[in-house]
Design a protein around this nucleic acid. Sequence first.
DNA 1: TATTGTTATACTCTATAACTATA
DNA 2: TATAGTTATAGAGTATAACAATA
Lengths: 174, 174
Amino acid sequence: MNPDDTAPLPPSRPPASRVGFMLSQVGALASARFAERLADLGLQPGDVDILHLIAANRPMSQQTLAGQLGVGPSRVVALIDKVERKGLLVRVRSAKDRRNHELHLTSAGQAVMTQMRSIGAAHEEDLVHALSPIQRHTLGELLAMVANSHGLTPDVHPDYQGRTERPQQSSGPR
Amino acid sequence: MNPDDTAPLPPSRPPASRVGFMLSQVGALASARFAERLADLGLQPGDVDILHLIAANRPMSQQTLAGQLGVGPSRVVALIDKVERKGLLVRVRSAKDRRNHELHLTSAGQAVMTQMRSIGAAHEEDLVHALSPIQRHTLGELLAMVANSHGLTPDVHPDYQGRTERPQQSSGPR
DNA sequence: TATTGTTATACTCTATAACTATA
DNA sequence: TATAGTTATAGAGTATAACAATA
């Protein structure tokens, strides 16, 4: 099947009028499937965001992390406790300012980030296994156009911000 | 720009290798934007699921609704209380079996469902405004292929089921 | 006095289990 | 005894405010 074919589709799935719903639906599937793969590594989705942020900007203070995540400092305490208990990061008192906790990835934390790249590839393959390479490319390009037009950046997932306002998760239109 | 062009993309957005992340990202955006529009009508995303289910299969008992939503009967009580307080549905004792509550949409509830169709169209237009009609069609077709290949049905959004297992919402891979 | 991180408190959401009224 | 719906209870998650250590 050629995705560029402009011939009308069978009425079971009206295409253009339900893109919003399908995006919401397939996006939720993608999130859920990825969460399952993370669980195999003993990780939760929120853990990944924290590890990525620290890896990209280390060492990082808890205040800075709170700002990046869009949550209050008190919540960061529990969030970090959890990941630290898994041995993926450590808090070290800053020598320059002893109020400050520097967050560092452990070697186990770095190993996990390497593992995540391979489960990401497997996730990708599972998700779009029904599409040909050209179709995958096309889908990626169209999604990037939509993402860019709404100011979504390639690296930031708006999960934490969305959790601030209720209701945070939604169905799409029917 | 032609989405079928197989030429390599600029490296800022590797297309095929990050479709999973972008699906999760754009899907979350679609859900959040739709939730905003619902809020203008005084509705929350969960309300919509309930109204749709009752509209499709009325009258409905609370037990049946609980089964469809994948939640326990006690939770349905609060869920329905909220929508009933908004005047969109009513509970009526069944004459045949007086233990049973039949759930019916009110005329206000039916009016809301009509309104939802128009906000759905506006939502759609906002979401994919950056795409040409042909590109929207292509995106819809590709998403439908992905959805069908994973057994997603055109009318059911897996939100409630996902809430059962923790963590329910997730980031995508980076 | 201001700032970093922590703890205390209250509030919401949800699941499980007891309860009632019907059958 | 079994079933539909309700209420009671307990646990998790999170936001706000009070607090201790450091600057």
